[in-house]
Amino acid sequence: TQSIHIEKSDTAADTYGFSLSSVEEDGIRRLYVNSVKETGLASKKGLKAGDEILEINNRAADALNSSMLKDFLSQPSLGLLVRT
């Protein structure tokens, strides 16, 4: 696993530069990185398409609903625990 911390203040970007997809496997919801913008903040921090997001801001990914995800992604900083 890899811990990634991203700050939007690093650039004038209003997004982190990646998209997520939610997949249900064996009754457990998993979050995967769908795509990463080549010039985006997430790419600079090493996030890659296909990575599994285990935690966002110290909250287990399978416990997050879509409104919580939207809220986290609109925050000025983001902490991710990722399995590559």
Rank of each mutant, 00 (worst) to 15 (best):
T1W: 07
T1G: 05
T1M: 12
Q2W: 13
Q2R: 15
S3V: 14
I4F: 08
I4K: 01
I4M: 06
H5L: 08
H5K: 05
I6Y: 05
I6G: 01
I6R: 03
I6C: 06
I6M: 15
E7N: 09
E7H: 09
K8E: 01
K8V: 02
K8A: 05
K8S: 07
S9C: 00
S9P: 10
S9W: 01
S9E: 08
T11D: 15
A12K: 14
A12L: 10
A12Q: 13
A13P: 08
A13H: 14
A13L: 07
D14G: 08
T15A: 07
T15S: 14
T15Q: 09
Y16L: 02
Y16Q: 05
Y16N: 00
G17Q: 00
G17E: 04
G17V: 01
F18W: 03
S19F: 06
S21Q: 15
S21F: 11
S21D: 11
S21P: 00
S22H: 13
V23I: 08
V23H: 10
V23Y: 09
V23Q: 09
E24P: 06
E24R: 09
E24K: 11
E25P: 00
E25M: 08
E25K: 12
E25R: 11
D26Q: 11
G27T: 03
I28M: 11
I28Y: 10
R29D: 05
R29K: 15
R29M: 07
R29H: 07
R30Y: 04
R30D: 01
R30S: 03
L31S: 04
L31P: 05
L31Y: 12
L31R: 02
Y32P: 03
Y32L: 08
Y32A: 02
Y32N: 05
Y32H: 05
V33H: 00
N34Y: 06
N34C: 09
N34L: 08
N34S: 14
S35W: 09
S35Q: 10
S35C: 08
V36I: 15
V36S: 03
V36P: 00
V36D: 06
K37A: 14
E38V: 09
E38T: 10
E38Y: 03
E38A: 13
T39M: 13
T39I: 15
T39Y: 15
G40L: 02
L41A: 12
L41G: 02
L41S: 08
L41W: 04
L41P: 10
A42F: 00
A42W: 00
A42K: 01
S43G: 13
S43Y: 15
K44M: 07
K44W: 04
G46T: 03
G46D: 04
G46S: 01
L47E: 02
L47W: 03
L47R: 01
K48W: 00
A49R: 11
A49T: 10
A49V: 14
A49Y: 06
G50Q: 03
G50T: 03
D51V: 05
D51I: 05
E52F: 02
E52R: 02
E52T: 00
E52M: 04
E52I: 03
I53W: 01
I53V: 09
I53A: 01
I53K: 02
L54E: 02
E55Y: 03
E55W: 03
E55K: 12
E55L: 04
E55S: 09
E55D: 03
E55R: 08
I56K: 04
N57C: 04
N57L: 00
N57V: 00
N57Y: 05
N58G: 15
R59Q: 15
R59L: 14
R59A: 11
R59W: 09
A61L: 11
D62I: 11
D62E: 11
D62G: 12
D62A: 14
A63S: 15
A63P: 02
L64Y: 07
L64F: 08
L64G: 02
N65I: 00
N65K: 08
N65W: 06
S66K: 13
S66W: 13
S67V: 08
S67M: 10
S67E: 15
S67R: 11
M68I: 13
M68H: 07
L69P: 07
L69W: 12
L69R: 02
L69T: 06
L69Y: 13
D71F: 06
D71H: 15
D71R: 11
D71E: 14
F72I: 14
F72Y: 14
L73D: 12
L73W: 10
L73A: 07
S74C: 10
S74A: 11
S74F: 12
Q75W: 08
P76H: 15
P76S: 11
S77F: 09
S77N: 07
L78H: 04
L78S: 05
L78Y: 06
G79C: 13
G79I: 12
G79M: 13
G79D: 15
L80A: 04
V82L: 03
R83M: 09
R83V: 04
R83E: 15
T84S: 15
